[in-house]
């Protein structure tokens, strides 16, 4: 095993963004499913209010996050790759039970393993936009006679609501699995600690890695086929 090195992986904004997004998605899901009449907690009226405010908070956060991703080039972390994808899946399905090492090395320039890249990219470009767009339609659609925004005069809420609900289920399932996968780092809590403090013990990196452009996946698997 290579030597461990304490690295500042998650910058301040990144953590702020991550935890607020977590909280907002939790609040949105919790109030959303109350609006959906899955249970009674706040009462319908309050649930709608909270859901609406949280939705705006979420949208503002997303705007900042996009800005951050673009300006820092961090968006490249999400470029999907097939390299190691199978190995990573095999790790979660089998390797992890045998204490096998993570097939993908986590480095500053490539924080995400290929599965994470794929899933997070899906969230960012598909599911979260679906929720935001269908949610905004939910807020701003008008019946034909409302005509303040003529372009989204929609006769029936049903399609919007069904898309929004379907997306909500997917997000919720993601959150569930995500919460569990936190525990699959080097140690059970290392991922959690990293996202809280920003610091994580990563395997020693070669100098050349530092020069590698952000997002380029590190692949040490070929060199260490030891699973």
């Amino acid at each position: 095993m290579s030597k461990n090195n304490r690295v500042y992986v998650y910058k301040g904004f990144e953590r702020f963004w991550h935890w607020n997004q977590a909280l907002l998605i939790f609040v949105l899901a919790f109030t959303g499913f109350e609006i959906h009449s899955s249970y009674d907690f706040f009462g319908f009226e309050t649930a709608v209010k909270i859901h609406n405010y949280a939705a705006w908070g979420f949208i503002i956060l997303i705007v900042f996050a996009i800005f951050w991703h673009v300006t820092t080039g961090e968006w490249k972390q999400y470029i999907p790759t097939t390299k190691n994808l199978k190995a990573q899946a095999e790790f979660y399905l089998f390797g992890i039970f045998r204490n096998a090492p993570h097939p993908t090395k986590k480095t500053l320039i490539s924080k995400l393993n290929p599965l994470q890249r794929l899933v997070y990219l899906g969230l960012k470009v598909l599911f979260i936009p679906i929720m935001v767009v269908s949610g905004l339609l939910f807020m701003f659609y008008r019946y034909p006679q409302g005509d303040s925004i003529a372009i989204i005069n929609i006769d029936n809420l049903e399609i919007i609501a069904l898309v929004h609900t379907a997306g909500a289920f997917v997000l919720l399932a993601f959150v569930l699995v995500h919460l569990y996968l936190i525990t699959t780092g080097h140690t059970i809590t290392s991922n959690l600690k990293a996202m809280i403090t920003g610091w994580e013990d990563l395997e020693e990196e070669d100098q050349k890695d530092q020069d590698q452009p952000i997002g380029k996946p590190e692949n040490e698997h070929d060199e260490n086929p030891k699973i």
């Binding site: 319908f44 029936n156 809420l157 049903e158 609900t165 379907a166 289920f169 997917v170 399932a173 569930l176």
Partner: peptide, 28 residues
């Protein structure tokens, strides 16, 4: 003759959603 949040839902979608959540949970 219209969809009203809190009253209406699509049963199939709800079932599929619940199944997804249950399977995720079982997987975990």
């Amino acid at each position: 003759d219209f969809y009203m949040p809190g009253r209406d839902r699509n049963r199939t979608l709800d079932l599929a959603g619940q199944l997804l959540l249950i399977l995720s949970f079982l997987g975990i």
